[in-house]
């Protein structure tokens, strides 16, 4: 199976600063991957390297043939009507699916005759998405698509996106700060921080192999099946750990709880930069 996206030791440097380094990812087709991390982590750089807007300093990128991209802020020609925008899409793209794009916008009640600049933020985002989907991409990249949308508009945007994944089996990579919104819609996650990939993989696997442990204060010493402590908080008598585990924690001294995607991401992002070890990340079914 050809991966939807594959990067190998991908890096981009500006002067002395690396915006992204040593990024190796394999993403199988048909998946929705969330790219999370703070501002400046390298999310946009990675997306721009994949689209070809940027050339890599090191490494390689391989993707499926048709890559769609919705840039941050969903730039559109504000004076164009929605109709004009669709005509532009049709004239610029050989693989344009006009019927589907119109149906999609019609279904959302977006008037084709209205200038894009006079649509609501949520509607503009939907037009940008319809324009990207109209090209029938095999891989769709979205850079912070939810950033400027209110909760309802986010919900509607994600609905359109998920319906397209269900109908067309396209692969999606989207970056976002808003982890809570992503937990339902993504099946894979890649955490970026300070230009490096910290963690990546199947979301269910990642959540299953990370647990929150609460037990007697213990700053050192091993706990059977704990592979790595990501976050440790110590009170006078109690320690709370967020750890990657290789199997069940059977020591009865520890209470074991599941972690949310949000809790996991925050713990990884709080790691000191010396602990940031680039690793090869496989995002496979």
């Amino acid at each position: 199976m050809t991966p939807a996206l594959e990067t190998l030791r991908l890096g981009r440097r500006y002067g002395r600063n690396w915006a992204l380094q040593d990024c190796s990812l394999t993403i199988a087709p048909g998946h929705v991957t969330a790219l999370v991390g703070p501002n400046g982590a390298g999310k946009t750089t990675l997306l721009h390297l994949v689209t070809g807007f940027l050339t890599p300093t090191t490494g390689v990128v391989r993707t499926l043939a048709r890559v769609g991209f919705v840039a941050q802020g969903q730039p559109l020609y504000r004076s164009f009507t929605v109709e004009d925008t669709l005509v532009m899409g049709r004239r610029l793209n050989r693989t344009w699916d006009d019927e589907r794009a119109r149906k999609r916008l019609h279904g959302l009640g977006i008037p084709l005759s209205r200038p894009v600049g006079r649509l609501s933020g949520g509607q503009q985002a939907q037009v940008a998405l319809a324009l990207a989907l109209g090209r029938r991409p095999e891989l769709l990249l979205l850079d912070e698509p939810l950033a400027s949308l209110d909760p309802l508009a986010r919900h509607e945007f994600l609905r359109t996106l998920m319906e397209s994944v269900a109908e067309e089996g396209l692969s999606v990579v989207l970056s976002s700060h808003d982890i809570a919104d992503l937990a339902r819609v993504c099946d894979h996650v890649v955490i970026l921080s300070a230009s490096r990939v910290l963690l990546g993989g199947d979301l269910a696997d990642v959540l299953r192999t990370h647990k929150r442990l609460t037990g007697p204060r213990r700053e050192n010493g091993r706990i059977a099946n704990v592979e790595r402590v990501i976050e440790a908080r110590h009170a006078e008598r109690q320690s709370t750990l967020l750890a990657r585990v290789g199997g069940p924690i059977l020591d009865p001294a520890w209470q074991v709880e599941d972690v949310s995607l949000e809790g996991l991401v925050l713990a990884y992002l709080a790691l000191p930069s010396t602990a940031l070890i680039a690793q090869r990340v496989e995002v496979l079914p």
Binding site: G30, H31, V32, H155, L158, R159, M162, E163, V165, A166, E167, R184, V185, C186, D187
Partner: peptide
């Protein structure tokens, strides 16, 4: 597709 549209979740 119906479940995806109703719940806004990943088809997978």
């Amino acid at each position: 597709r119906e479940v995806v549209a109703a719940l806004v979740i990943n088809p997978n």
